[in-house]
């Protein structure tokens, strides 16, 4: 896949999008569909936050360039051309991440990778909002995953064993 043109520095107004954009970069090779929808979420949310100041407009315009380039590159992928298929793809991926981390948790295996999986699952559930309102189940999973990631991270940082 051709490399995307880099984005300008992230405007401070868009700080809340930095994790979703980083997740997009991390998935460019691993799962381009997930990477595409993470950017779409950042684009849509960024436009709601600030599409007026020149710095933000410039950033959003470059992000849109990336999205258009990706859509062209992935044009034969149904998960890109049909959002209903894309939604199922992102949801399955988020659930897989969640279940991996949850299994590790229940087996008492606490490590950085499982913390990241919990957190990434929560970010991808944010991404699902581009397709419409979240289900109650997704909202519960997001809350639980974010709480678990923070809790286990703090335990490991303080040398404590998570309960």
């Amino acid at each position: 896949m051709a490399a995307l043109a880099p984005l300008p520095p992230l405007p401070p107004q868009f700080k809340s999008l930095q994790h979703h954009l980083r997740t997009a970069q991390e998935h460019d090779k691993r799962d381009p569909v997930v990477a595409y929808y993470c950017r779409l979420y950042a684009m849509q949310t960024g436009m709601k936050i600030d599409s007026k100041t020149p710095e933000c407009r410039k950033f959003l315009s470059k992000l849109m360039d990336q999205l258009e380039a990706l859509k062209k590159q992935l044009g034969d992928n149904e998960a890109i051309t049909q959002e209903i298929v894309g939604c199922a793809h992102v949801e399955n991926y988020a659930l897989k991440m969640f279940l991996y981390a949850d299994n590790e948790d229940r087996a008492g295996r606490f490590h950085k990778n499982m913390i990241k999986s919990f957190y990434t699952a929560s970010l991808l559930i944010d991404v699902l909002t581009v397709f419409g309102e979240l289900t109650d189940e997704n909202m519960k999973h997001r809350k639980y995953a974010r709480w678990k990631a923070t809790y286990i991270h703090n335990c490991l940082k303080n040398g404590e064993t998570p309960q």
């Binding site: 779409l40 436009m47 407009r57 849109m64 959002e83």
Partner: peptide, 26 residues
């Protein structure tokens, strides 16, 4: 300032239109 606001608004519309096209909503 009126014309600056007009340019900003037009650019905003352009972004909205590109987003709608991207999502096949036009």
């Amino acid at each position: 300032t009126g014309s600056v606001a007009t340019v900003a608004s037009a650019e905003q519309d352009e972004l909205s239109q590109r987003l709608a096209r991207l999502r096949d909503q036009v």
